[in-house]
């Protein structure tokens, strides 16, 4: 396993070029949460107004529907949700400038092609390690679609948020190469 690479948001092309499938990464800075319901709304809003509730350029979206914060917490438990549910919306979101996604589970070929085209990275966080993941979230505020409850878009300030590069901007995919090594 490689050394941990520390990166900050927003992501530049230079940082992205240096991230390779199988790298362990710690992210610091602002990231945004959105699940499928929020993706659908983002694209509907953009189609109608040509505007978005936040600037996607260079940003990372974390696929998560967190638990409410207990007193003293910035946010409750917050592990990744399954990413394929966002696949239908992702190529269009990438065209709008998104550079990184954090989730879990394999993506479609269309998404991976769009990632290569738009030079973006897909990170996996550990599904079900939600309580310790929330330790790296220092601040959270809902910035759009509050009526979606846990699925609302939140702006998170994170410090050393741990994840693994699964698909890099060249389209290499650890969900394919990893299991191949251990299949009998």
């Amino acid at each position: 396993m490689s050394e941990t690479k520390k990166i900050t948001t927003p992501l530049t092309d230079e940082v992205i070029a240096n991230l390779k499938t199988g790298d362990r990464v710690e992210i610091t800075g602002v990231i945004y949460t959105a699940r499928d319901a929020a993706h659908k709304r983002l694209l509907e809003e953009y189609a109608e107004t040509k505007k978005l509730p936040f600037d996607l350029k260079g940003q990372i979206i974390y696929y998560v529907g967190p638990c409410p914060a207990k007193p003293g917490q910035a946010l409750g438990s917050a592990g990744p949700t399954t990413s394929y549910r966002m696949d239908a919306y992702t190529p269009e979101i990438l065209k709008l400038g998104l550079k990184g996604m954090i989730g879990k589970g394999q993506r479609s070929q269309e998404v991976k092609d769009a990632m290569v085209e738009n030079k973006a990275v897909y990170f996996a966080a550990i599904g079900g390690a939600a309580a310790i993941i929330s330790k790296s979230i220092k601040k959270a505020e809902v910035i759009a679609y509050e009526d979606l409850g846990p699925e609302a878009i939140r702006r998170l300030e994170v410090e050393d948020f741990p994840c693994i590069v699964v698909t890099d901007a060249e389209g290499n995919d650890l969900y394919i190469t990893g299991p191949e090594k251990y299949a009998r």
Binding site: C67, G76, S77, A129, I132
Partner: peptide, 22 residues
């Protein structure tokens, strides 16, 4: 991953935090 999962289980139990957000 196993290390993280086990640490998460203990941390959640000690602090009464949900093990998983789902």
């Amino acid at each position: 991953i196993f290390d993280q999962i086990l640490e998460n289980v203990r941390y959640a139990r000690e602090n009464d935090y949900p093990i998983c957000q789902d």
